[in-house]
Simulated assay, not measured.
Amino acid sequence: MRILKTSLVAAALCASIAMPTFAGDETVPSGTFVDEYGTSFEFQPCGAGTALCAVLTNLEGASATEDNLAFVGKQVIEAEQIAPNAWKGSLAAGGMSADATITQIDPNTVTIQGCRAAILCKTLSYNKAS
């Protein structure tokens, strides 16, 4: 049992060291962020100010189906802060939903990891639009 507790403490410490931090941390990303395909989200604080919400503002590539395009202009992400520069919540569009983890790498970069069934995961990087 002692080994298990020590392992858990060590894992938590490693996770806190590995979490990205930068000047002005504890901020919520805001503004438009775009991936390499041209899909974009408008992030803004929500809830008590530490939660993160995102509106899908543009959809490009293979994901730009008629069904998915119906969600452009709608809030599709809501996530609660779980650590400095990290939020966990859901990405929902119509009947489809996925667990979402948003990590702010630096003031101009966020990643979104979406997971379905806890094992089918994909991470995309988004850069702040100028």
Rank of each mutant, 00 (worst) to 15 (best):
T109Y: 11
C46V: 08
P20Q: 10
V72T: 07
A83L: 12
V28S: 13
G114C: 13
L56S: 02
T39M: 06
A54P: 08
A98P: 05
L91V: 07
L8M: 15
T57Y: 03
L69N: 15
G38C: 04
A83S: 14
V55C: 10
T32W: 06
E66C: 02
P45R: 10
K88W: 01
G38V: 04
I3L: 14
I112A: 14
G38N: 07
F41M: 15
K88A: 00
G49H: 11
Q104D: 11
T50M: 03
L4F: 06
C121G: 12
P29D: 02
A117D: 13
S130M: 04
F33N: 10
A100F: 03
G95P: 14
A129K: 14
F43D: 10
A10R: 00
S16L: 15
W87F: 02
Q104N: 12
A48M: 04
A100G: 09
L4Q: 14
Q75L: 05
G61E: 01
L8V: 12
S125V: 14
N68I: 00
A11C: 05
V34P: 13
Y126W: 10
T109W: 13
S63T: 03
K88S: 02
P84V: 13
A11M: 07
K74Y: 10
A51D: 14
N85F: 14
G49V: 05
L8P: 05
I17H: 12
A10T: 07
M19A: 11
T27P: 09
Q113Y: 01
S125G: 08
T111M: 03
P45K: 07
I112K: 12
G38D: 02
L8H: 08
N108H: 11
T65L: 08
E42L: 12
P45L: 08
K128P: 13
D99S: 03
G61Q: 01
I105C: 09
G47H: 03
Q104P: 04
G49E: 06
L56H: 06
V76K: 06
T111Q: 08
I102D: 06
T101A: 09
T27W: 00
C121N: 15
F22S: 09
